[in-house]
């Protein structure tokens, strides 16, 4: 049982509709501190809606959404510095260099310029971009841009990192390298991460826990991943098939807890 103090994200009985389309129905979701949780689901399953509610961009129709004890929509400013987001596209500002993009969140949070620059440079080195600090966005490849985007999110030392399909637009090799680096950094620095993806591989590689959302029906499958499970290719294949089956609708009903 998760104690309230360990919980950083808490959704209870959350319902959300867009017009007649109900994307979340009585959804319960808890994320513990220092946990990496993957939200998987087909298009329209509601994973981006959940992420947007956690980010505070949209309110829930009913139910409770809490992030670090605050309502992210109505207490938007109280979560300043507590969470950071990396998006599907890098969203770097073209008039800023790599290091200037990375330090943006720090400057917004009021860090002195010199200190912000030092922290951003350190984080760029951590995501393997040492030497590329002064390049403009158009001088960086897609993978490098996404690394800057991740550095920008991690720079602000947030309690919670949200990823919205952050690796989905990269080629397979770059995506693999980047997600491995990212998961290592998140664990090393004790961050909590909720990430949305439609790629099962991303979830199996990175997550401590995988939640598969079914359109309008909440969590269709919940899996807990361990390093041992990740290391066993037969287990990974089996889990991949189960997740794929749930996403395609062959496995309905109550959440299936496949805890190790």
């Amino acid at each position: 049982m998760i104690s309230p103090t360990d919980t950083i994200i808490e959704l209870r009985g959350v319902t959300k509709s867009f017009g007649t389309n109900r994307v979340a129905d009585n959804l319960d979701l808890l994320v513990q501190r220092r946990e990496i949780v993957a939200l998987l689901g087909q298009t329209g399953a509601g994973k981006s809606t959940v992420l947007n509610m956690v980010m505070g961009n949209i309110p829930a129709d009913s139910g409770t959404v809490r992030v670090a004890g605050h309502d992210p929509y109505n207490e938007f400013i109280k979560l300043r510095g507590k969470m950071a987001v990396s998006f599907q596209t890098d969203r770097l500002l073209p008039w800023r260099t790599a290091v200037e993009n990375a330090e943006l969140g720090l400057l917004i949070l009021g860090k002195p310029t010199a200190e912000a620059r030092e922290i951003a440079t350190t984080w760029l080195a951590r995501v393997n971009l040492a030497g590329a600090e002064n390049r403009y966005v158009h001088e960086l490849s897609g993978g490098m841009r996404q690394r800057v985007s991740l550095a920008r999110a991690l720079c602000v030392d947030p309690e919670l990192v949200l990823l919205d399909e952050s690796f989905s637009q990269l080629d397979h090799v770059t995506s693999m390298a980047l997600r491995a680096d990212f998961a290592k950094l998140v664990r090393e620095f004790g961050k909590t991460c909720l990430f949305v993806t439609h790629r099962i591989d991303d979830a199996l590689e990175m997550a401590d826990r995988i939640l598969v959302l079914k359109p309008g029906a909440g969590v269709g499958l919940e899996l807990v991943m361990t390093p041992e499970m990740r290391a066993d290719s037969a287990t990974v294949h089996e889990l991949h098939d189960r997740i794929a089956g749930t996403m395609e609708g062959s496995e309905a009903g109550q959440p299936d807890l496949a805890r190790a």
Binding site: N128, A132, E139, S141, G143, A177, D181
Partner: peptide, 11 residues
């Protein structure tokens, strides 16, 4: 940490 595999568009 893995080495950067991506290259910049310039060189």
């Amino acid at each position: 940490m893995q080495k950067v595999m991506e290259q910049s568009p310039q060189s």
